[in-house]
Computed example of a mutant assay.
Amino acid sequence: MAPAVYLFPRSQADGLARDVRTLTQWLSHDILALVGPVLATRQMLFDFVVDKLRRRELLDPRRIRPVRVALQNQRDNLAAFAGQLDTKFAGIAQAAGVPDDLVRAACVLHRKPTTSPAYWQLWGGLQSQLGGHFQAVFAAVAQVMQRTPRSSSLVENLNSRLRNYFTLRCHLGTPHLDLLRFFLNHRGFVRSRRAERQGKNPRELMTGQAHPHWLMLLGLSPLQPQRS
């Protein structure tokens, strides 16, 4: 059955477009931005955006529902990079012996333009609070942000690769999808605009852990050299 089409006044359509645009901006500029709150807060805000889209779904189900469902199903994948940031920032704070909130404030500092008065105001406040640890903390935060991939770009890359498997015009059952997921999560990127991603797979990039031997992933033991 085709989805129902709802006709509503131009003013209501403009309001719907404005609301969806605002929700999209929150999602990209605040929730999924590299500089942002801790993972738990991002997840709460993400659920808020999804709920607001669900409330407006009946007004334009053909276009809003696919977006809402995709976001709802991929929340943990899209926000996974924030968990990495939280762990790394906590490590910086522990190594320098400073509060976690000051390390995150150093992260926020990277988002502000250096021409803004707010940048230098925050810089001065952090420098006075961190004292001799300021330069080391600031440099460590910059390095973490540079080396932490945003999972949104990884998910977009993965989705583009998945499309080839869903045009086979055949039924894909759960075993097939599980095998496909395992293969793609552990298959390295042959090419990448960022050198640190080349040759690594999504699992390595998202967890920060080295890829174990294939046989160990399958529950077996690595092959041993044959003795003469």
Rank of each mutant, 00 (worst) to 15 (best):
L109T: 00
P113V: 00
R104C: 10
F46E: 04
F46Q: 03
K112R: 07
P61F: 02
L130K: 05
Q129S: 15
Q127S: 13
V67W: 09
F48S: 10
R65E: 15
Q84C: 13
V49A: 09
F89C: 13
L102V: 04
Q74A: 11
F46S: 04
D86W: 06
N77L: 14
I64W: 05
Q84Y: 08
Q129P: 08
D60R: 00
G91T: 13
R104G: 06
R63Q: 15
L71A: 08
Q135M: 06
V67M: 10
R68C: 13
R68W: 10
L53H: 04
S128E: 14
L78R: 05
L53S: 09
R55I: 01
F48I: 04
P113S: 02
Q135I: 06
F134W: 10
D60V: 00
V103F: 10
R63A: 15
P99A: 10
P99Q: 06
L53M: 14
Q74M: 11
R55C: 04
P66V: 11
D76G: 06
V69L: 07
L78F: 03
K112A: 03
R111I: 01
W123R: 14
W123C: 07
Q121I: 06
P66C: 10
A95G: 12
W120C: 00
K112N: 04
W120I: 01
F48Y: 11
D60F: 00
D101C: 12
D100R: 11
L58A: 12
S128D: 14
F134E: 01
R104T: 10
P61R: 02
A95F: 13
F89S: 13
F81M: 08
L78D: 10
D51G: 14
W123L: 12
V108P: 00
L122A: 06
V103W: 11
A80I: 02
R104Y: 11
F48D: 13
F134L: 02
Y119P: 00
F89W: 11
A105Q: 05
S128T: 14
G97Y: 03
A96Q: 14
P61V: 00
V108F: 14
A80N: 05
G91E: 15
S116D: 08
R104N: 03
I92Q: 08
N73M: 15
S128N: 10
L85P: 10
C107M: 09
R62D: 02
G132M: 09
G83L: 12
K52T: 05
P113F: 03
K112W: 04
L109G: 01
D76H: 08
R55G: 04
C107A: 13
R75C: 10
H133E: 15
D51W: 03
Y119V: 00
D101A: 14
N73C: 15
R111S: 07
